[in-house]
């Protein structure tokens, strides 16, 4: 068993290593044209010397003709594809070396996005669980609302995001609330659907057992349905929080927000600051991984305590 675990770690490290190697390799042809143009401007000899001639040549040919330029493809200011270490440096500089209050600190921007995510997630999850309870207990709600909750999963409802931002702005609401609204409705529907499934997961025999005790429906809820729904709840919470984060990021796009990871992405793409885009992207990825990982840990400990997992 232990050797299997070690093998898995090796396998993951190998895959990550291969990805990094591939990334470095890809940076060379991706950036070679830009590097050669810089060299030409600096008066250096490049082959072929004119930018016009280079434009239609393949990147690989240019790399072979100008091998001395390879080093520079990993060090450009605004590369088409920044090398891994450039992204890592930028991440380091903008998190550890900048003060948290600075507008250039990624921690500050991450916090702006995270707070909206968490607020929206809490609202969406709370309402989602309430609606699920309603659906399970009321036949009318089940018939009327449940199909729409399911259909909503097939619709790119995130397209509503720009409108929500602008409409709320026009009635004087801005800042964290509009983004939280988007995060809330994106996490709402997965939670409803998952929670309904979970609350319905007890089988007929388990329900019949409670009936033989003539348990009330609220006793049935607290003692059977709610505990049985926990694994389903956590699964949909993990989906929901990822959706919430995407919602908060997308919510930062349309108004030209100045703070938040989405704003960093957008600003980076306006000014061609690729390193900034990549570092914002990684910050978002790390944030998502932490949130999902944290939920996973809570899930394991809760389910363990409830005797549903080893």
């Amino acid at each position: 068993m232990r050797s299997e675990g070690i093998r898995a770690i090796w396998a993951v490290l190998t895959v990550v290593g291969v990805i990094l190697l591939f990334w470095y390799a890809a940076s060379v042809p991706m950036n070679i044209k830009g590097v050669l143009t810089e060299f030409e401007r600096a008066g250096q000899q490049v082959d072929p010397p004119k930018a016009v001639d280079r434009r239609d040549m393949s990147e690989f040919e240019l790399v072979i003709d100008n091998p001395y330029a390879i080093d520079e493809t990993w060090e450009q200011d605004r590369p088409r594809l920044p090398a891994p270490h450039q992204v890592a440096e930028e991440l380091w500089e903008t998190t550890v070396e900048k003060k948290i209050t600075s507008k250039r600190s990624l921690i500050y921007h991450s916090w702006v996005t995270l707070s909206a995510t968490m607020l929206g997630f809490a609202i969406g999850t709370g309402l989602g669980i309430l609606l699920a309870v309603g659906i399970v207990h009321s036949r009318v709600m089940d018939l009327s609302v449940m199909p729409w909750a399911i259909v909503s999963q097939t619709i790119p409802i995130i397209a509503l995001a720009p409108m929500i931002i602008v409409v709320l702005y026009s009635i004087g609401i801005q800042g964290i609330i509009p983004k939280a609204v988007i995060s809330a409705y994106l996490s709402f529907f997965p939670v409803v659907v998952g929670m309904v499934k979970g609350l319905r997961s007890p089988d007929a025999m388990q329900l019949d057992l409670l009936r033989t005790y003539s348990a009330s429906s609220s006793q049935g809820f607290w003692k059977l349905r709610l505990p049985a729904s926990m694994p389903y709840l956590f699964t949909s919470l993990k989906i929901g929080i990822a959706a919430s984060l995407v919602g908060a990021i997308v919510g930062e796009l349309p108004t030209g927000a100045v703070a938040g990871l989405g704003a960093r992405l957008l600003a980076g793409s306006y000014y061609g600051q690729t390193v900034q885009i990549w570092s914002a992207l990684f910050a978002a990825a790390i944030l998502a991984a932490c949130l999902v990982g944290l939920l996973g840990m809570v899930e394991r400990s809760v389910l363990k305590r409830m005797g549903m997992a080893q």
């Binding site: 088409r80 993990k238 990822a242 984060l245 995407v246 990021i249 997308v250 990871l261 992405l265 957008l266 980076g268 793409s269 061609g272 690729t274 885009i277 990549w278 914002a280 992207l281 978002a284 990825a285 998502a288 991984a289 999902v292």
Partner: peptide
């Protein structure tokens, strides 16, 4: 699969 992949959009639009 759990990451906010839409974030790659600005990069891919650039490419």
């Amino acid at each position: 699969a759990a990451l906010p992949i839409v974030g790659t959009a600005p990069i891919l639009v650039m490419w």
